[in-house]
Design a protein around this nucleic acid. Structure first.
Lengths: 120, 120
DNA sequence: GATATCTGTTTCCTTTTGGAAAGTAGTTTC
DNA sequence: GAAACTACTTTCCAAAAGGAAACAGATATC
């Protein structure tokens, strides 16, 4: 299975491929876009808030995904010293740069659904 | 684990959630963005062309992903009656509507990589 | 006739992902 | 002091995703 790139083997394409890999490595999975989208809308949400907002997610996945997003500097985590301890999750400046991507993706999804319903 | 949505339980947010689910159901996996991106650049590529262009993919995944994309009307498949049989894969009009999303994602990936290198 | 090319499919396996449920731990209200 | 609330973690398991390699069928070239 030897391979020689022939068509898109330009520098820009290699860079774009790498960029998509980079982006997906940080955004892959079933929940990241939902969590980020929710945090972009209403900033500063507690764990239980997110559990309520992100429809269908469980504690394990929410916890794990939030850790991933925090590691990648897209979400911040702040422990508040309130009566029953609460934690505030918020989108970072870095994370906010994703809002156009998420917006575009959501818009595409809406249009896609429409076009599918038309053809049926 | 009772849940009551309190913050983003508006109609637009429900629609956006659904839109992201729709989009991801069609675009999930390791290779779809790469294949679509490649087909948007150079239209009409053979199976072997794609195998060469999409760095790292194997025959099984390429075959499977192309089938998925064809089912969802994002890619067209045309069998040519050439000497050794060849097949032309191309992006559909429907598929072309993804170009802005892919563009945004790639741009974000590029900027993200830059910012990570800066902070290190 | 052997080898090569094009387009896949099939098999077998490992890794990754995701989910349900129970457990942990601290605080606070009744 | 029992129950409730917040914020998780852990365990155990099932399903999905992904990959390497072999196989297959058709034509065409050496």
């Amino acid at each position: 299975m030897k391979k020689k790139a022939t068509v898109n083997n330009t520098f820009v394409c290699q860079v774009r491929m790498q960029a998509i890999r980079d982006a997906m490595s940080v955004l892959s999975g079933k929940w990241k876009f939902h969590i980020l989208g929710t945090l972009i809308e209403g900033d500063k949400l507690g764990f239980m808030d997110l559990l309520r907002e992100v429809d269908g997610i469980g504690t394990k996945m929410l916890s794990k995904e939030l850790q991933d997003l925090e590691i990648n500097h897209l979400v911040s985590r702040t422990v508040m010293n309130t009566k029953p301890i609460t934690v505030e999750y918020a989108i970072t400046e870095q994370g906010k740069t994703l809002s156009t991507v998420i917006e575009e993706l959501a818009n595409w999804g809406i249009e896609y659904r429409k076009s599918i319903l038309d053809t049926k």
